[in-house]
Write a protein that binds this DNA or RNA. Structure first.
Lengths: 195, 195
DNA sequence: ACCTTATCTTGACAGTGTCAGGATTATGCG
DNA sequence: CGCATAATCCTGACACTGTCAAGATAAGGT
C-alpha cells in the first residue's frame, strides 16, 4: 500500500507545473489563468510554484518561451517536403494559421498578452529564431524588408482573426476551399516573381 | 457649503462608469482590469456598477461596442478627402493601424479578448457595420471575397503586431518612411488594377 | 554524523468579482 | 399633495486570487 504516498519532494515539479499550466491555459485562457489552480492540478500546495518560477509572470514567461518554440516547430513541420521556395513560404503561413487555430490560448499568450515578460532572454531568443527564419524565407525569394513585413502581417492577421473566430466568412467553407483561399491571399504577400 | 455634497443618486453614473472604465482599461490593460477600481475612479461603492452593467463582462461588452464604433470612426476620418477608391482603401488600413497604436488596450478588448460577450446584439451590430464598410471598400475596387480577406488580414496583422510592439523593424524608422512602407504593403493586398 | 541548501507546506494579508439585504431617492398614481 | 412603487446606490459577506513570511521536510556535501 505504499504506492506513491506523495513524497514531500515531487521529483520534477517544475516540468509538472509547466504541463499543468498549459492545460490551465488552454481551458481558461490567458485572462482566466490562475496560479493556484495550476498548483492544484499538479497536486501541490498553492505556494509551491513560487519557488520554481517566482510569480505568475515568471511561469507565463517560461510557458511563452516554450510555446514560441512549438510555434516555430509547427511552421517547420509544414515546410518539410516543399522544394519550391514560394511553396515553402506559403506553407509557413499555413502553419502560422494552423497553430493559432489549434492552440489559440498559447497563441494569444505569445502575441497578444502583457503578462509574460518579453524582456526575458529565453523569450527573446525564441522570438528571434522565428523572425530570422521568416527573413530567410523571404530573402530566398529575393525579397526585402517590405516583403518580410507583408508576409508576416498577412499571416499574422489571418491567424489572429481565425484564433478569435472573427473571420466567419472563412469558417463557412470546406477545408479545401478554405486552404485555397488562404493560399491565394498569402501568395499576394510574396515578392513579385522574378520570372 | 452645499457644493456637490455627493448626492446619493449620481445623476449619470452609467456614463461616468464607462468613462472611468476606459481610463482603467488604458492604464491597466484588459488583463489588469478591475471592476472595483473602476468604481473607485467614479467615486462610488464597489457594487454600484452591477446595477447598470450586471457584471464585469457586461461593462466590458458595452465598452467594446463603443470602442468598435470609435474604431470605425477612426477609419472613416482617414478616408475623408480621398477621391481615388484605392487611396480610400489604403487610408482605411492606415486608420486601422492608427487606432491600434493609439489605443492598444481598447483594440485588444475588441479583437483579442474573451471577456466581452461577443454574442451581444450591440457588439454584433457595431462589428457588422465595420465589416460591411470593408466589403464596400473592396467591392468598389471590383474585388471579391479573396480581396476582402486579403485587405482585412493585412491591415489587422500590421495593427495587432504594432499594438503589441512585436514589429520592431517598423519603429526604427521615421514617420514618413514607416507610412510609405505600410502603404506599399497595403497596396499589395488590394485587388489587381482593372487598368 | 551534521550542517547547509533546496524544496514544499502552512498561514496570513490585501485585493478581486459577485450575491443578499438594507438605505436612499426619484417617480408615477391616487 | 401624499404615498406606494421602483430605481438607484451602499454595506457586508463569501469564496477566490497572488504574494509574502515562516516553518517543515528531505537531499547533498563535507
Amino acid at each position: 500500500m505504499d504506492m506513491a504516498e506523495k513524497p514531500y519532494h515531487h521529483g520534477d515539479l517544475r516540468a509538472a507545473l509547466l504541463a499543468a499550466a498549459e492545460k490551465e491555459l488552454t481551458e481558461k485562457g490567458v485572462e482566466g489563468f490562475s496560479l493556484r489552480s495550476v498548483a492544484k492540478r499538479a497536486g501541490v500546495s498553492h505556494a509551491a510554484p513560487a519557488h520554481h518560477f517566482g510569480d505568475t509572470g515568471g511561469l507565463l514567461t517560461t510557458l511563452a518561451a516554450e510555446g514560441f518554440t512549438q510555434f516555430q516547430n509547427t511552421l517547420d513541420a509544414r515546410e518539410i517536403g516543399a522544394t519550391d521556395p514560394r511553396e515553402k513560404a506559403v506553407r509557413a503561413g499555413l502553419g502560422y494559421l494552423e497553430f493559432a487555430v489549434a492552440r489559440p490560448a498559447l497563441f494569444r499568450l505569445i502575441f497578444s498578452s502583457a503578462r509574460p515578460d518579453f524582456a526575458s532572454a529565453d523569450l527573446i531568443a525564441a522570438a528571434n529564431r522565428a523572425y530570422d527564419h521568416l527573413v530567410e524565407l523571404v530573402t530566398t525569394l529575393g525579397g526585402g524588408e517590405t516583403d518580410v513585413i507583408a508576409l508576416w502581417a498577412t499571416s499574422h492577421g489571418l491567424a489572429d482573426l481565425s484564433a478569435g473566430n472573427k473571420m466567419r466568412t472563412l469558417q463557412g467553407k470546406s477545408r479545401d476551399a478554405r486552404e485555397a483561399l488562404i493560399r491565394a491571399v498569402l501568395m499576394r504577400s510574396l515578392p513579385k516573381d522574378a520570372g
